[in-house]
Design a binder for these strands. Structure first.
Lengths: 115, 115
DNA sequence: GTAAGACCTACCGTTGACGTCAGGGTCAAG
DNA sequence: CTTGACCCTGACGTCAACGGTAGGTCTTAC
């Protein structure tokens, strides 16, 4: 599969795919002419990356996870990092939830004022 | 209160406070010598800003909320914006939750492999 | 064999929330 | 009236995840 199709099917830009490669997240093969050739599961991988990016993981962290995604095993450092990230995400969710509550307060206060 | 104390008590940098002012979020008075003079409630306001920043609201949006924070009322546009932001935050939380689940899967899969 | 797409590398530009530095003024104490 | 801590205004630097552009190459259908 060439880069354009991966982009369409995974919903990211061609530029983003080349960026992921630059960050070591994808290592597609090359055609005789030098064009990138992706395996079928590249689309799923990219979707997974997007999910992690959306949770605030930087490329470096995702790269560190790659071996444990591929092998299904983790080293001590990887487990520590995973736990740290999970904790960070939990705290982020708490922060978001708190902010949401504050916005809700604002809306309700204004609604009460109108009533 | 001068800027340094506000910074210490709210936990943000002096630079950040000046930046907030630049964005129209704070408008402290000035001493005869030109130094910023903040009211007592500035600390709480700053903490609130931090909470909204943490939830992904940009300065512009926070600035748009200021009048409705101060007056306790909202215009039609503000209510629409508030709803949009709340929706965005909810989706963000969903995204984070999904990513968290994926990381949990990784950890459990690796744990099972070790067992 | 040619023309339209799709692709390549290399590089600069963007955005947001600050960090950091330079060069100088202010304030309270002694 | 000087010292030291604190503050001021620019203005440039940073970092991440790409966006966009220029100038050229590959692939494929006709």
């Amino acid at each position: 599969m060439r880069i354009g199709e991966v982009a369409r099917r995974s919903g990211v830009s061609v530029r983003a795919l080349r960026y992921y490669e630059e960050q070591g997240l994808l290592t597609p093969g090359r055609s005789p002419g030098g064009q990138r050739e992706y395996p079928e599961d590249a689309v799923d991988r990219v979707r997974f990356f997007q999910q992690l990016y959306a949770a605030g993981l930087p490329s470096r962290r995702i790269a560190e996870l790659l071996p444990c995604i591929d092998t299904g095993t983790t080293t001590v450092e990887q487990r520590a990092m995973l736990d740290a990230e999970r904790e960070r995400i939990r705290k982020q969710i708490d922060g978001y939830t708190a902010a949401l509550a504050r916005l809700d307060e604002l809306v309700e206060a204004a609604a009460a004022r109108r009533a």
